[in-house]
Design a protein around this nucleic acid. Structure first.
Length: 199
DNA sequence: CGTAAGATGAAG
DNA sequence: TTCATCTTACGG
């Protein structure tokens, strides 16, 4: 787990692409669920699209805690989004984990999500948290408590398979290419698209 | 205070 | 394309 913290301490823009290929595991009394991270986004305080843009508040406080602090936020009144704080404390940087290629605990993830097949278990930030049983109650906790675990890949992903693209679902500064995906992965979220290199 | 706008998903 | 659903931040 120390290895994950070292990556997160680098800052959001550096760590978001570096986390592709890592396995995210969620431990609970219902077993272990998780998969390989195939999509992430970086947010910084000097970024109009970031929740930390207007400064620290009760809601976004976790983003300003030390790297590895878990920031969970309710989207559209009903969905939970999973982020890891990054960079030095007080900087308000975070990484949104947007999609996984499921590898572990299929049965439990399908139970939590309903009858969806593997392709849709964790394709998108809200589906991901639902499949892993992640709730707002975990906001402000830290990777060190072991409830969530980041396992490094056996070998780093080849650089050519990591693509930077515009971010999704935001209206401000969406053009900043801080969304990172594994090229060609069918588990990446978003409208049907060719995962071809683009700007 | 009132209210509009979200880092979305379902349907597929 | 619409709708569900609700907290937060901002305008008055």
């Amino acid at each position: 787990m120390h290895e994950a913290l070292r990556v997160l301490e680098l800052g959001a823009v550096e760590a978001a692409p570096a986390l592709l290929g890592w396995t995210l595991l969620a431990h609970s009394h219902d077993g272990v669920t998780g998969g390989i991270i195939v999509e992430s986004e970086a947010y910084r305080q000097d970024d109009p699209a970031s929740h930390s843009w207007r400064g620290r508040s009760a809601r976004n406080n976790s983003l300003f805690e030390e790297a590895g602090t878990i920031y969970i936020y309710r989207s559209y009144g009903l969905h939970a989004m999973l982020n890891f704080s990054a960079g030095p404390p007080g900087r308000g940087e975070g990484i949104l984990i947007r999609a996984l290629e499921p590898t572990t605990g299929f049965k439990e993830m399908e139970r939590r999500r309903g009858t969806d097949g593997p392709l849709f278990l964790a394709k998108g930030p809200a589906r991901l948290t639902q499949a892993l049983g992640i709730t707002l109650g975990q906001d402000g906790t830290h990777l060190r408590n072991g409830r969530l675990e980041l396992v490094p890949p056996p070998k780093p992903l080849p650089a050519a398979t990591v693509l930077a693209t515009p971010r999704i679902g935001i209206s401000k500064a969406a053009q900043i290419p801080w969304r990172f995906i594994v090229a060609g992965s069918p588990y990446v979220s978003g409208p049907k698209r060719l995962n071809a290199p683009r700007a």
